[in-house]
Structure formats: C-alpha cells, structure tokens
Amino acid sequence: MSTPEKTVEAADHGAVHAHEHPSDLQYVYIALFLALVTAAEVAVYYVKSFKGLLVYILATMAVVKFSVVVMFFMHLRFDSKVFRRFFVTGIILAMFCYVSVLSTFHIWHR
C-alpha cells in the first residue's frame, strides 16, 4: 500500500494535465493544416511527374497527418508517457505483423 505522498509523486510523474492543451482556435488551425495536407495528397496523386516518388511523398504526408492527430487531438504530446508507450507498442506490433506476413508470403513459402 502506498502513502499519499507517494501517490502525489506518482501523479506528478504521470504528468496528468501538467501541460495546457491547445486553445479552440489552435485546434481550428491544426484542422486547417490537416485539410491542406489532404488536399495536397490528392493533388500529388494526379501529378504524373511525381509517379516515381508517389509512394514516398504520400507515405510522408500520411505519417505527418497521423502524428498531428495523435499528438494534438488525442493529446498524447501533453499526456502521460505511459499512454504513449501503450500506443507505440501497438503500432510497432502492427508493423511486425505486416513484416511477418510479408516474409511468410515472399520468403518462407519457397
């Protein structure tokens, strides 16, 4: 059983609500940025000269959008690191799943 002092310490370590979240106006700016990146994604899709780099450009844009939503709308940037670990572990395992299945299809079946 922990003492109340330890609980307060743990709460400080968890940094719950330790930082202020963005204001409503900042949320609107973030959404505008996301809308612009989405528009850019669709535009790049139609530009034939980008064909060779299409995968890299689109993947980069998707990673940027993903990160912005996770950091600002899901408040992972301001919340406890424990939540970040849960989420990042899930993403890493998902990537591992893809690589495992890919290797099964392209390497191990031969």
Binding site: F83, F87, I91
Partner: peptide, 30 residues
C-alpha cells in the same frame, strides 16, 4: 487515486487502442 496517478479508465482505453492497432494492422497487412 492510483499508484500511477492515472485513471484506470484512461489507461484501459489506451491499452484498448494499442490492441486495436494490431487488429487494423492485421487487416491492412492482409
């Protein structure tokens, strides 16, 4: 008040979302 200072509900939700990453990771991989 918990030993981590985090509410159990929020920890559970993030653990759930982590597991959902695996579900959709599997579907997208397939």
């Amino acid at each position: 008040a918990t030993s981590t200072g985090l509410t159990n509900e929020k920890v559970a939700m993030w653990a759930f979302l982590g597991s959902e990453c695996l579900l959709f990771g599997g579907l997208i991989s397939t």
